[in-house]
């Protein structure tokens, strides 16, 4: 029970981040000439895997939920609460980022709020939540907590140490180095992200098509 509810948090986080936030941010920040291709690729590439996660029979138990008397049941409410929490938080975060972007546009830290940076952050979180969902469901809360701790500690400490050394007193240009570092990461990540999207699209079309052909829901089977 605990395991399923926690897995829901990650599944819904993954869904919201990929389906709603990432494409909207990408579309909002893309240069006009690149929009057309991204508009086609991004939503499809992100939407189908996320949708297939949500429709995963063995995780969600769609057939079971359809068989039991379940109108406004506490279990259903608890499971979908995480969806709305993610939705509200993500939208709030999105608005915050957009606001900050316009405020800090002229500051040296502006690249931190570039669309590439935002996409990068969204991708990291979307990937993280997407990976954690099956880990929690398959291996339980304990194992998932250890993995999550390692990831979070690594990311936070790594970033913290980097920022500390680059911006310590006497290293006046540290902040610029940090910006350069992020720019370099972005330059590297942009094609990687783009290739991932293409790969995601191919995978999504393949599995999505397979799933659709199997009627996706167990309840649709003969």
């Amino acid at each position: 029970m605990r395991r399923i509810l926690l897995a829901d948090w990650f599944a819904h986080g993954h869904l919201i981040l990929t389906v709603f936030i990432a494409p909207s941010i990408i579309l909002a920040f893309l240069p006009v000439e690149g929009r057309g291709a991204y508009m086609v690729i991004v939503p499809f590439a992100l939407f189908l895997p996320a949708l297939s996660l949500l429709r995963e029979e063995r995780f969600h138990g769609w057939t079971l939920m359809a068989c039991v008397p379940q109108k406004r049941n506490a279990y259903i409410r608890r499971r979908f609460a995480s969806f709305w929490v993610w939705f509200v938080l993500s939208m709030a975060w999105f608005l915050l980022v957009v606001s900050i972007t316009y405020v800090v546009r002229e500051l040296p830290v502006a690249p931190l709020f570039s669309w590439q940076a935002i996409v990068f952050v969204v991708f990291v979180f979307a990937t993280f939540t997407g990976l954690m969902m099956p880990i929690v469901y398959r291996f339980g809360v304990g194992v998932a907590a250890i993995i999550a701790s390692v990831v979070v500690i690594t990311v936070f400490f790594g970033t913290g140490i980097g920022v500390f050394f680059l911006t310590r007193p006497g290293n006046e240009k540290g902040i610029y180095k940090l910006v350069m570092l992020f720019s370099a990461i972005h330059s590297f990540l942009t094609p990687v992200i783009f290739m991932s999207l293409l790969l995601g699209l191919v995978t999504a079309v393949h599995f999505g098509g397979m799933r659709l052909s199997q009627r996706i829901f167990a309840r649709k089977e003969l």
């Binding site: 399923i4 063995r58 079971l64 039991v68 008397p69 049941n73 469901y137």
Partner: peptide, 29 residues
């Protein structure tokens, strides 16, 4: 559905959790 018990040819319970946990979920309904 409160009054129906069902046994499907492919039982629709959660594979990766225990029988006790599965029953706890179903019992809530």
């Amino acid at each position: 559905k409160e009054r129906i018990g069902f046994v499907l040819d492919r039982p629709p319970y959660y594979d990766d959790i225990s029988l006790r946990a599965n029953a706890r979920i179903v019992s809530m309904f």
